[in-house]
Design a protein around this nucleic acid. Structure first.
Length: 425
RNA sequence: GUGCCUGUAGCUCAAUGGUGGAGCGCCUCACUGUGGAUGAGGAGGCCGUGGGUUCGACCCCCAUCAGGCACCCCA
Protein backbone atom coordinates (compact mmCIF):
# COMPACT_ATOMS: atom_id res chain seq x y z
CA UNK A 1 0.00 0.00 0.00
CA UNK A 2 1.12 3.51 -0.72
CA UNK A 3 1.76 5.60 2.35
CA UNK A 4 -1.42 7.27 3.52
CA UNK A 5 -1.07 10.31 5.71
CA UNK A 6 -2.22 9.03 9.05
CA UNK A 7 -5.02 10.44 11.12
CA UNK A 8 -4.23 12.58 14.14
CA UNK A 9 -3.60 10.57 17.28
CA UNK A 10 -6.66 10.09 19.39
CA UNK A 11 -9.14 11.02 16.67
CA UNK A 12 -11.67 8.69 15.12
CA UNK A 13 -12.94 8.14 11.61
CA UNK A 14 -16.65 7.55 11.45
CA UNK A 15 -17.35 5.21 8.55
CA UNK A 16 -21.02 4.99 7.59
CA UNK A 17 -21.50 1.99 9.86
CA UNK A 18 -20.11 3.86 12.88
CA UNK A 19 -21.82 7.04 11.89
CA UNK A 20 -25.16 5.26 11.96
CA UNK A 21 -24.54 4.15 15.54
CA UNK A 22 -23.52 7.66 16.53
CA UNK A 23 -26.59 9.09 14.85
CA UNK A 24 -28.75 6.63 16.76
CA UNK A 25 -27.17 7.53 20.10
CA UNK A 26 -27.44 11.24 19.46
CA UNK A 27 -31.07 10.86 18.44
CA UNK A 28 -31.77 9.13 21.77
CA UNK A 29 -30.05 11.99 23.57
CA UNK A 30 -32.14 14.50 21.67
CA UNK A 31 -35.34 12.60 22.35
CA UNK A 32 -34.78 12.41 26.08
CA UNK A 33 -33.51 15.98 26.42
CA UNK A 34 -36.42 17.50 24.59
CA UNK A 35 -38.93 15.22 26.35
CA UNK A 36 -37.99 16.94 29.56
CA UNK A 37 -38.41 20.31 27.90
CA UNK A 38 -34.75 21.18 27.41
CA UNK A 39 -33.68 23.32 24.46
CA UNK A 40 -30.66 22.70 22.33
CA UNK A 41 -27.82 25.23 22.21
CA UNK A 42 -24.23 25.27 21.03
CA UNK A 43 -21.16 27.39 21.58
CA UNK A 44 -17.96 27.80 19.59
CA UNK A 45 -15.31 25.10 19.57
CA UNK A 46 -12.62 27.77 19.87
CA UNK A 47 -12.37 29.93 22.97
CA UNK A 48 -9.82 32.28 24.49
CA UNK A 49 -7.77 30.46 27.06
CA UNK A 50 -8.80 33.16 29.56
CA UNK A 51 -12.26 31.66 29.71
CA UNK A 52 -10.85 28.54 31.32
CA UNK A 53 -8.26 30.30 33.40
CA UNK A 54 -11.15 31.64 35.47
CA UNK A 55 -12.12 28.27 36.84
CA UNK A 56 -12.08 24.65 35.69
CA UNK A 57 -9.70 22.21 37.25
CA UNK A 58 -6.18 23.50 36.95
CA UNK A 59 -4.99 20.33 35.27
CA UNK A 60 -7.75 20.39 32.71
CA UNK A 61 -6.54 23.63 31.20
CA UNK A 62 -2.83 23.49 31.86
CA UNK A 63 -2.16 19.94 30.84
CA UNK A 64 -5.10 18.66 28.88
CA UNK A 65 -6.22 21.50 26.68
CA UNK A 66 -5.07 22.02 23.12
CA UNK A 67 -3.73 25.56 23.28
CA UNK A 68 -2.22 27.41 20.34
CA UNK A 69 -1.72 30.93 19.15
CA UNK A 70 -3.76 32.19 16.24
CA UNK A 71 -2.21 34.12 13.33
CA UNK A 72 -3.39 37.23 15.15
CA UNK A 73 -1.43 36.17 18.22
CA UNK A 74 -4.42 35.36 20.36
CA UNK A 75 -4.04 32.43 22.72
CA UNK A 76 -6.84 30.11 21.74
CA UNK A 77 -7.92 26.72 22.97
CA UNK A 78 -10.01 23.93 21.58
CA UNK A 79 -12.67 23.67 24.24
CA UNK A 80 -12.00 20.86 26.73
CA UNK A 81 -15.42 21.25 28.34
CA UNK A 82 -18.60 23.24 27.87
CA UNK A 83 -19.42 24.62 31.29
CA UNK A 84 -17.37 27.86 31.01
CA UNK A 85 -18.95 28.53 27.63
CA UNK A 86 -22.38 27.95 29.12
CA UNK A 87 -21.51 30.33 31.96
CA UNK A 88 -20.49 33.01 29.49
CA UNK A 89 -23.56 32.59 27.33
CA UNK A 90 -25.80 32.84 30.35
CA UNK A 91 -23.91 35.81 31.79
CA UNK A 92 -24.10 37.72 28.50
CA UNK A 93 -27.88 37.55 28.49
CA UNK A 94 -28.60 37.22 32.16
CA UNK A 95 -31.29 39.90 32.06
CA UNK A 96 -32.96 38.53 28.94
CA UNK A 97 -33.22 34.84 29.62
CA UNK A 98 -36.17 33.23 31.34
CA UNK A 99 -35.02 31.32 34.38
CA UNK A 100 -34.88 28.57 35.21
CA UNK A 101 -33.45 27.64 31.86
CA UNK A 102 -33.17 24.12 30.63
CA UNK A 103 -30.48 23.73 27.99
CA UNK A 104 -28.76 20.77 26.38
CA UNK A 105 -26.02 20.35 23.83
CA UNK A 106 -23.93 17.76 22.09
CA UNK A 107 -20.72 18.56 20.28
CA UNK A 108 -17.01 17.89 19.94
CA UNK A 109 -14.41 18.48 22.65
CA UNK A 110 -10.65 17.99 22.82
CA UNK A 111 -8.36 16.92 25.58
CA UNK A 112 -4.71 16.09 25.24
CA UNK A 113 -4.77 12.70 26.91
CA UNK A 114 -3.05 9.43 26.33
CA UNK A 115 -5.51 7.60 24.14
CA UNK A 116 -6.66 4.14 25.11
CA UNK A 117 -9.84 2.14 25.02
CA UNK A 118 -12.71 4.40 26.03
CA UNK A 119 -10.61 7.51 25.88
CA UNK A 120 -9.77 9.62 22.84
CA UNK A 121 -8.42 13.11 22.32
CA UNK A 122 -11.40 14.20 20.26
CA UNK A 123 -14.74 13.15 21.62
CA UNK A 124 -18.37 14.19 21.76
CA UNK A 125 -20.07 15.18 24.94
CA UNK A 126 -23.67 15.54 25.93
CA UNK A 127 -24.15 18.45 28.32
CA UNK A 128 -27.44 19.18 29.99
CA UNK A 129 -28.10 21.82 32.61
CA UNK A 130 -30.91 23.34 34.62
CA UNK A 131 -29.82 26.82 35.62
CA UNK A 132 -31.45 29.36 37.90
CA UNK A 133 -32.94 27.33 40.71
CA UNK A 134 -31.72 25.81 43.95
CA UNK A 135 -34.67 23.49 44.21
CA UNK A 136 -33.98 19.85 45.06
CA UNK A 137 -36.59 19.01 42.46
CA UNK A 138 -34.14 20.29 39.86
CA UNK A 139 -31.48 17.88 41.11
CA UNK A 140 -33.93 15.02 40.96
CA UNK A 141 -35.08 16.01 37.48
CA UNK A 142 -31.56 16.08 36.08
CA UNK A 143 -30.81 12.65 37.52
CA UNK A 144 -34.12 11.43 36.12
CA UNK A 145 -33.03 12.65 32.68
CA UNK A 146 -29.93 10.49 32.94
CA UNK A 147 -31.95 7.50 34.11
CA UNK A 148 -34.50 7.99 31.34
CA UNK A 149 -31.70 8.03 28.80
CA UNK A 150 -30.51 4.67 30.07
CA UNK A 151 -34.05 3.32 29.82
CA UNK A 152 -34.41 4.76 26.34
CA UNK A 153 -31.30 3.05 24.97
CA UNK A 154 -32.21 -0.23 26.61
CA UNK A 155 -29.82 -0.35 29.55
CA UNK A 156 -31.51 -1.84 32.60
CA UNK A 157 -31.02 -0.89 36.23
CA UNK A 158 -29.11 -4.14 36.50
CA UNK A 159 -26.60 -2.89 33.97
CA UNK A 160 -26.08 0.72 35.02
CA UNK A 161 -26.55 2.67 38.22
CA UNK A 162 -26.44 6.33 39.14
CA UNK A 163 -24.69 6.84 42.46
CA UNK A 164 -25.58 9.98 44.35
CA UNK A 165 -24.00 11.88 47.21
CA UNK A 166 -24.04 15.41 48.60
CA UNK A 167 -21.06 17.67 49.11
CA UNK A 168 -22.71 19.59 51.95
CA UNK A 169 -23.44 16.36 53.78
CA UNK A 170 -19.86 15.21 53.36
CA UNK A 171 -18.50 18.57 54.46
CA UNK A 172 -20.59 18.33 57.59
CA UNK A 173 -19.39 14.80 58.22
CA UNK A 174 -15.78 15.84 57.68
CA UNK A 175 -16.24 18.66 60.14
CA UNK A 176 -17.44 16.18 62.73
CA UNK A 177 -14.22 14.27 62.15
CA UNK A 178 -12.40 17.57 62.68
CA UNK A 179 -10.81 17.42 59.28
CA UNK A 180 -9.63 20.90 58.45
CA UNK A 181 -10.96 22.79 55.48
CA UNK A 182 -7.70 23.05 53.57
CA UNK A 183 -7.27 19.31 53.85
CA UNK A 184 -10.59 18.61 52.13
CA UNK A 185 -9.34 18.37 48.52
CA UNK A 186 -6.79 15.80 49.67
CA UNK A 187 -9.54 13.94 51.51
CA UNK A 188 -11.60 13.80 48.34
CA UNK A 189 -8.69 12.03 46.70
CA UNK A 190 -8.45 9.65 49.61
CA UNK A 191 -12.14 8.87 49.23
CA UNK A 192 -11.64 8.31 45.54
CA UNK A 193 -8.83 5.82 46.21
CA UNK A 194 -10.82 3.60 48.55
CA UNK A 195 -11.85 1.07 45.94
CA UNK A 196 -8.56 1.14 44.11
CA UNK A 197 -6.22 0.20 46.93
CA UNK A 198 -6.09 -2.59 49.46
CA UNK A 199 -7.24 -1.60 52.92
CA UNK A 200 -3.69 -1.40 54.21
CA UNK A 201 -2.46 0.63 51.25
CA UNK A 202 -5.43 2.93 51.57
CA UNK A 203 -4.67 3.55 55.24
CA UNK A 204 -1.13 4.45 54.43
CA UNK A 205 -2.22 6.72 51.63
CA UNK A 206 -4.76 8.42 53.89
CA UNK A 207 -2.24 9.05 56.64
CA UNK A 208 0.32 10.30 54.13
CA UNK A 209 -2.32 12.76 53.01
CA UNK A 210 -2.32 14.30 56.46
CA UNK A 211 -5.10 12.50 58.30
CA UNK A 212 -4.68 11.23 61.84
CA UNK A 213 -5.34 7.58 62.66
CA UNK A 214 -8.58 8.48 64.37
CA UNK A 215 -9.71 10.46 61.34
CA UNK A 216 -8.90 7.57 59.03
CA UNK A 217 -10.98 5.26 61.21
CA UNK A 218 -13.82 7.74 61.16
CA UNK A 219 -13.57 8.19 57.42
CA UNK A 220 -13.53 4.46 56.85
CA UNK A 221 -16.71 4.07 58.90
CA UNK A 222 -18.30 7.00 57.15
CA UNK A 223 -17.75 5.55 53.72
CA UNK A 224 -19.35 2.26 54.70
CA UNK A 225 -22.49 3.99 55.87
CA UNK A 226 -25.05 3.52 53.11
CA UNK A 227 -27.72 5.13 55.28
CA UNK A 228 -25.83 8.38 55.75
CA UNK A 229 -28.19 10.12 53.34
CA UNK A 230 -30.92 10.04 55.98
CA UNK A 231 -28.98 12.71 57.83
CA UNK A 232 -29.38 15.11 54.92
CA UNK A 233 -32.73 16.77 54.47
CA UNK A 234 -31.81 17.50 50.88
CA UNK A 235 -31.09 13.89 50.08
CA UNK A 236 -34.19 12.63 51.84
CA UNK A 237 -36.27 14.93 49.69
CA UNK A 238 -34.21 14.03 46.65
CA UNK A 239 -34.79 10.30 46.96
CA UNK A 240 -38.48 10.80 47.60
CA UNK A 241 -38.69 12.75 44.33
CA UNK A 242 -36.67 10.16 42.47
CA UNK A 243 -39.26 7.61 43.50
CA UNK A 244 -42.06 9.87 42.35
CA UNK A 245 -40.33 10.23 39.00
CA UNK A 246 -40.31 6.45 38.70
CA UNK A 247 -36.57 5.96 38.24
CA UNK A 248 -35.66 4.76 41.74
CA UNK A 249 -34.30 1.47 40.36
CA UNK A 250 -31.51 3.36 38.66
CA UNK A 251 -30.54 5.62 41.54
CA UNK A 252 -28.67 4.74 44.69
CA UNK A 253 -26.95 6.52 47.55
CA UNK A 254 -23.18 6.09 47.70
CA UNK A 255 -20.97 7.96 50.18
CA UNK A 256 -17.91 7.33 48.04
CA UNK A 257 -19.07 9.54 45.18
CA UNK A 258 -17.34 12.88 45.54
CA UNK A 259 -16.34 14.14 42.07
CA UNK A 260 -13.05 15.84 41.41
CA UNK A 261 -14.18 19.23 40.23
CA UNK A 262 -14.10 22.01 42.78
CA UNK A 263 -17.19 23.84 41.68
CA UNK A 264 -19.72 21.30 42.87
CA UNK A 265 -21.49 22.44 45.99
CA UNK A 266 -24.42 20.14 46.70
CA UNK A 267 -25.72 17.03 45.04
CA UNK A 268 -23.10 15.11 43.10
CA UNK A 269 -23.63 11.96 41.05
CA UNK A 270 -21.91 9.53 38.76
CA UNK A 271 -23.34 6.79 36.61
CA UNK A 272 -21.42 3.53 36.39
CA UNK A 273 -21.74 0.35 34.50
CA UNK A 274 -22.48 -2.48 36.92
CA UNK A 275 -20.33 -5.58 36.66
CA UNK A 276 -16.75 -6.53 36.01
CA UNK A 277 -15.84 -3.45 34.01
CA UNK A 278 -17.60 -0.78 36.07
CA UNK A 279 -16.84 2.02 33.67
CA UNK A 280 -17.80 5.59 34.53
CA UNK A 281 -20.45 6.74 32.06
CA UNK A 282 -21.47 10.21 33.14
CA UNK A 283 -21.07 12.59 36.01
CA UNK A 284 -22.49 15.82 37.28
CA UNK A 285 -23.89 17.72 40.16
CA UNK A 286 -25.03 20.99 41.62
CA UNK A 287 -23.01 24.17 41.39
CA UNK A 288 -24.04 27.38 43.08
CA UNK A 289 -22.00 30.09 41.42
CA UNK A 290 -21.63 29.16 37.82
CA UNK A 291 -21.88 32.55 36.25
CA UNK A 292 -20.06 34.63 38.84
CA UNK A 293 -16.68 33.37 37.69
CA UNK A 294 -17.07 34.94 34.29
CA UNK A 295 -18.38 38.20 35.65
CA UNK A 296 -22.11 37.75 35.97
CA UNK A 297 -24.41 37.45 38.95
CA UNK A 298 -24.10 34.16 40.78
CA UNK A 299 -26.59 31.62 39.53
CA UNK A 300 -27.24 28.18 40.94
CA UNK A 301 -27.62 25.23 38.66
CA UNK A 302 -27.35 21.50 38.23
CA UNK A 303 -26.26 19.42 35.28
CA UNK A 304 -24.17 16.59 33.96
CA UNK A 305 -21.96 15.59 31.06
CA UNK A 306 -21.62 12.30 29.24
CA UNK A 307 -18.91 11.40 26.75
CA UNK A 308 -19.80 9.42 23.66
CA UNK A 309 -16.83 7.04 23.81
CA UNK A 310 -17.53 5.08 26.98
CA UNK A 311 -21.29 4.97 26.56
CA UNK A 312 -20.84 3.49 23.10
CA UNK A 313 -18.60 0.75 24.49
CA UNK A 314 -21.14 0.02 27.20
CA UNK A 315 -23.99 -0.08 24.69
CA UNK A 316 -22.01 -2.36 22.40
CA UNK A 317 -21.09 -4.76 25.19
CA UNK A 318 -24.68 -4.78 26.38
CA UNK A 319 -25.78 -5.65 22.86
CA UNK A 320 -28.52 -3.03 22.82
CA UNK A 321 -27.54 -1.27 19.62
CA UNK A 322 -30.18 -2.25 17.09
CA UNK A 323 -29.22 -3.88 13.82
CA UNK A 324 -30.21 -2.28 10.56
CA UNK A 325 -29.31 1.27 11.56
CA UNK A 326 -28.08 3.50 8.83
CA UNK A 327 -29.10 5.13 5.64
CA UNK A 328 -28.20 2.51 3.08
CA UNK A 329 -30.39 2.43 -0.03
CA UNK A 330 -33.62 0.45 0.04
CA UNK A 331 -33.68 -0.32 -3.65
CA UNK A 332 -31.04 -0.97 -6.28
CA UNK A 333 -31.90 -0.44 -9.91
CA UNK A 334 -29.84 -2.84 -11.97
CA UNK A 335 -28.66 -1.92 -15.41
CA UNK A 336 -29.05 -4.49 -18.14
CA UNK A 337 -27.22 -2.88 -21.03
CA UNK A 338 -26.48 0.48 -22.56
CA UNK A 339 -29.84 0.58 -24.37
CA UNK A 340 -31.92 0.01 -21.26
CA UNK A 341 -29.93 2.39 -19.04
CA UNK A 342 -32.24 5.39 -19.65
CA UNK A 343 -35.27 3.27 -18.79
CA UNK A 344 -33.56 2.18 -15.55
CA UNK A 345 -32.78 5.74 -14.58
CA UNK A 346 -36.30 6.89 -15.37
CA UNK A 347 -37.77 4.14 -13.20
CA UNK A 348 -35.37 4.99 -10.39
CA UNK A 349 -36.61 8.57 -10.46
CA UNK A 350 -40.20 7.32 -10.14
CA UNK A 351 -39.36 5.18 -7.14
CA UNK A 352 -37.57 8.11 -5.51
CA UNK A 353 -40.66 10.21 -6.08
CA UNK A 354 -42.50 7.61 -4.02
CA UNK A 355 -40.13 8.40 -1.15
CA UNK A 356 -37.67 5.54 -1.27
CA UNK A 357 -33.88 5.54 -1.25
CA UNK A 358 -32.77 4.27 -4.64
CA UNK A 359 -29.40 3.77 -6.29
CA UNK A 360 -28.76 2.97 -9.91
CA UNK A 361 -25.89 0.60 -10.57
CA UNK A 362 -23.38 2.79 -12.36
CA UNK A 363 -21.95 0.32 -14.89
CA UNK A 364 -23.13 -2.32 -17.26
CA UNK A 365 -22.09 -5.49 -15.45
CA UNK A 366 -23.27 -9.02 -15.13
CA UNK A 367 -26.44 -9.14 -13.08
CA UNK A 368 -24.77 -11.47 -10.64
CA UNK A 369 -22.18 -8.87 -9.87
CA UNK A 370 -24.82 -6.24 -9.40
CA UNK A 371 -26.73 -8.44 -6.95
CA UNK A 372 -23.55 -9.18 -5.07
CA UNK A 373 -22.87 -5.48 -4.75
CA UNK A 374 -26.40 -4.96 -3.43
CA UNK A 375 -25.87 -7.78 -0.94
CA UNK A 376 -22.75 -6.22 0.42
CA UNK A 377 -24.49 -2.93 0.98
CA UNK A 378 -27.45 -4.64 2.57
CA UNK A 379 -29.91 -3.38 0.00
CA UNK A 380 -33.07 -5.49 0.34
CA UNK A 381 -34.74 -5.01 -3.06
CA UNK A 382 -33.44 -5.06 -6.63
CA UNK A 383 -35.21 -4.04 -9.80
CA UNK A 384 -34.47 -5.56 -13.21
CA UNK A 385 -35.60 -4.01 -16.45
CA UNK A 386 -34.19 -5.88 -19.42
CA UNK A 387 -35.39 -6.12 -23.02
CA UNK A 388 -38.07 -8.69 -22.06
CA UNK A 389 -39.63 -6.42 -19.45
CA UNK A 390 -39.41 -3.37 -21.66
CA UNK A 391 -41.28 -4.94 -24.56
CA UNK A 392 -44.01 -6.14 -22.19
CA UNK A 393 -44.16 -2.89 -20.24
CA UNK A 394 -43.33 -4.80 -17.07
CA UNK A 395 -40.73 -4.69 -14.30
CA UNK A 396 -39.05 -7.46 -12.32
CA UNK A 397 -38.82 -6.91 -8.58
CA UNK A 398 -36.49 -9.13 -6.60
CA UNK A 399 -36.36 -9.74 -2.86
CA UNK A 400 -32.65 -10.20 -2.33
CA UNK A 401 -32.97 -11.85 1.04
CA UNK A 402 -35.45 -14.56 0.13
CA UNK A 403 -34.26 -14.72 -3.48
CA UNK A 404 -37.81 -14.46 -4.71
CA UNK A 405 -38.69 -12.38 -7.69
CA UNK A 406 -41.82 -11.41 -9.49
CA UNK A 407 -42.49 -9.62 -12.74
CA UNK A 408 -45.29 -7.10 -12.43
CA UNK A 409 -46.99 -4.36 -14.40
CA UNK A 410 -45.21 -1.05 -14.16
CA UNK A 411 -48.19 0.43 -12.33
CA UNK A 412 -47.89 -1.92 -9.37
CA UNK A 413 -44.12 -1.53 -9.04
CA UNK A 414 -44.17 0.67 -5.93
CA UNK A 415 -46.69 -1.57 -4.23
CA UNK A 416 -44.58 -4.63 -4.96
CA UNK A 417 -41.41 -3.00 -3.62
CA UNK A 418 -43.20 -2.15 -0.40
CA UNK A 419 -44.18 -5.79 0.00
CA UNK A 420 -40.54 -6.81 -0.16
CA UNK A 421 -39.15 -4.07 2.07
CA UNK A 422 -38.57 -5.05 5.68
CA UNK A 423 -41.25 -3.46 7.82
CA UNK A 424 -40.06 -0.29 9.51
CA UNK A 425 -39.56 -0.57 13.25
C1' G B 1 3.28 12.52 32.19
C1' U B 2 5.01 7.08 34.27
C1' G B 3 5.41 1.60 33.72
C1' C B 4 4.33 -2.89 30.87
C1' C B 5 2.64 -5.51 26.30
C1' U B 6 1.93 -5.50 20.93
C1' G B 7 2.97 -3.71 15.45
C1' U B 8 3.94 -9.48 9.61
C1' A B 9 -1.31 -9.58 3.15
C1' G B 10 -7.62 -5.72 3.25
C1' C B 11 -8.93 -8.50 8.33
C1' U B 12 -7.45 -12.25 12.28
C1' C B 13 -2.93 -14.38 13.28
C1' A B 14 1.58 -18.21 12.46
C1' A B 15 6.84 -18.51 11.19
C1' U B 16 14.72 -21.85 16.39
C1' G B 17 19.22 -15.77 13.31
C1' G B 18 19.47 -18.91 7.18
C1' U B 19 14.81 -17.67 0.19
C1' G B 20 7.94 -14.82 4.52
C1' G B 21 2.83 -18.63 5.49
C1' A B 22 -2.49 -19.95 6.76
C1' G B 23 -7.71 -18.87 7.37
C1' C B 24 -11.21 -15.35 5.99
C1' G B 25 -11.90 -11.46 2.41
C1' C B 26 -10.87 -9.69 -2.74
C1' C B 27 -10.53 -10.54 -8.41
C1' U B 28 -11.27 -14.13 -12.65
C1' C B 29 -13.45 -18.55 -14.52
C1' A B 30 -16.93 -23.05 -14.41
C1' C B 31 -22.16 -19.73 -14.69
C1' U B 32 -22.65 -14.28 -21.71
C1' G B 33 -30.96 -12.54 -17.79
C1' U B 34 -29.70 -13.68 -11.51
C1' G B 35 -25.80 -12.91 -5.95
C1' G B 36 -24.87 -16.15 0.02
C1' A B 37 -22.76 -23.01 -1.83
C1' U B 38 -18.77 -25.83 -4.42
C1' G B 39 -14.40 -26.32 -7.35
C1' A B 40 -10.15 -24.31 -10.18
C1' G B 41 -6.99 -20.30 -10.92
C1' G B 42 -5.09 -15.22 -9.59
C1' A B 43 -3.72 -10.57 -7.40
C1' G B 44 -1.96 -8.60 -3.01
C1' G B 45 3.99 -7.71 1.73
C1' C B 46 10.80 -2.55 1.63
C1' C B 47 7.74 -7.97 8.13
C1' G B 48 5.24 0.16 11.44
C1' U B 49 9.66 3.60 10.57
C1' G B 50 15.02 4.75 11.32
C1' G B 51 19.57 3.18 13.19
C1' G B 52 22.79 -0.81 15.34
C1' U B 53 24.81 -6.03 16.25
C1' U B 54 25.88 -10.16 12.67
C1' C B 55 28.76 -13.50 7.10
C1' G B 56 23.36 -13.14 7.30
C1' A B 57 17.74 -9.91 11.05
C1' C B 58 10.48 -10.59 10.74
C1' C B 59 13.42 -12.67 14.88
C1' C B 60 18.54 -9.73 19.02
C1' C B 61 19.68 -4.27 20.80
C1' C B 62 18.47 1.18 20.69
C1' A B 63 15.40 5.08 19.13
C1' U B 64 10.85 6.68 17.11
C1' C B 65 5.68 6.40 15.66
C1' A B 66 1.03 3.90 16.42
C1' G B 67 -2.37 0.69 19.25
C1' G B 68 -3.64 -1.87 23.89
C1' C B 69 -3.31 -2.56 29.42
C1' A B 70 -2.29 -0.48 34.35
C1' C B 71 -1.32 4.25 36.80
C1' C B 72 -2.53 9.61 36.70
C1' C B 73 -6.85 12.11 35.64
C1' C B 74 -11.53 12.32 34.24
C1' A B 75 -16.39 12.10 30.29
Amino acid sequence: MVDIIRSVKGTRDFYPENMAVRRWMFDKIRTVSTQFGYQEYEGPCLEFIDLYAAKSGEELVKEQAFVFSSPGDDLLTLRPELTPTLARMVAQQQYELAFPLRWWSIGPFWRYEKPQRGRTREFYQWNIDLVGTESVAADAEIVAVAATFFKEVGLSAGQVRIFVNNRRLMDQAFSQLEIEKDLRPAVFRVVDKLDKLSEKEWRTFAEDSGLTGIQVDGLSELLKNDALWRESEELVEFFALIKTLGVEDYVEYNPKVIRGLDYYTGTVFEAFEIGAQSRAILGGGRYDNLVADVGGNALPGVGFAMGDVVIELVLRDAGVIPAGLGDQPQVIMTVFDVETLPASMRLAAEIRAAGMRVVVYPDVDKLGKQFKFADKLGIPVAIVVGPDELTQGKVTVKDLKNREQITVEKESLIEQIKKFLPSPM
